[in-house]
Simulated assay, not measured.
Amino acid sequence: MVAGKWKWPVYHLFVGAIAILMLYPIIWLFMSSFKESRTIFATASQLVPQSWDFGNYAAGWAGVGGQPFAQFIVNSLIIVVLATIGAVISSALVAFGFGRLDFKGRNLWFALMMVTLMLPHDVVLVPQYIIFSKLEWLNSMKPIVIPNYFGAPFFIFLMIQFIRSIPIELDEAATIDGCDKFRLFYRIILPLIKPALATAAIFSFYWRWEDLIGPVLYLNSPQKYTVSMGLKMFLDSESGSNWGAMFAMSIVSLIPVVVVFFMFQKQIVEGISSSGLKG
């Protein structure tokens, strides 16, 4: 009885300690954004600044390389929105084909699609760069956005698990009522896999927002840079890095991610748990 009485307090204390440990880097980053750049690493062991410098946010927002930081945010939002729309829609269509349509070689194509999940991203960087160079897509958002309109293997697999959990009798009833394949997909399947769609959209948002390799490879003009590249521009090995401004804008760049997480955390949990239990 005594053990049961102390079970939950000890559990919450343990979980709270782990949460604080995991959040400490973010807390340190936030506090360091109010320190002078020259004192950030000299006083790294001191969490609370001795003197609060709010100028880091003004300097960071003013931008770097002749570009305001707001421009980097706009560029990232354009890429994120377009890429997410393409990834979710195309993945849903492909998942519907694998989950509900019977065509020749379906198992082979599905196996090939699953193999790409184990393919390291670095392996395809050079071939992709050569292809996009031949297409004259360099220094544009096309190489970062357009590939998402051909489906993402992880999202396809996630949605297939949802589609396979939907009773096939619904398809048969809709077909009897006169629904063709597209209307079956649009009116029956899509509304029933909303958790998977939301999960795919959220993950796509996270991945595209934090992506650095793609913009570094394909974007050459500062006015087209994303948030990740804008943050990198605050670091200069020759003249001196503006750590304070970079930390301040790092906190600003985290705001969309945190907002999206708290708005859609229920969909994230539901989407992952449902796909795992019903697959």
Rank of each mutant, 00 (worst) to 15 (best):
K35S: 11
L135E: 02
W52D: 04
A198P: 02
K134R: 13
K278S: 08
P256M: 11
I26V: 14
I27L: 15
A19V: 13
F182M: 10
F185L: 14
Y11T: 15
F261I: 10
V15C: 06
Y24P: 09
Q265N: 15
S241R: 13
L77R: 07
S140C: 12
L21Y: 15
F261N: 06
V227A: 03
A174G: 10
P25D: 05
G16T: 13
A198G: 04
F154Q: 04
V64F: 03
P143L: 07
F162P: 00
S241P: 13
A42C: 06
P49E: 01
F247D: 03
G63L: 11
W207F: 15
D180K: 11
A59G: 09
V145N: 06
P25T: 06
K232L: 15
S239V: 15
A62M: 10
Y149F: 15
A83F: 09
G66K: 09
L231N: 01
A200H: 01
I85P: 09
L138G: 10
N107A: 14
L212D: 07
L125A: 12
T84G: 08
L77E: 04
S239I: 12
F110C: 00
P9F: 12
F162D: 02
I251K: 04
D122K: 08
W243K: 06
V80H: 01
A44I: 14
F103E: 07
L77V: 15
F162C: 01
W6E: 08
V259N: 08
S32T: 00
F41M: 11
L184G: 03
Y149E: 06
F69G: 01
K5P: 05
M114Q: 10
M1G: 13
R183M: 09
G151I: 03
A3C: 08
F150P: 12
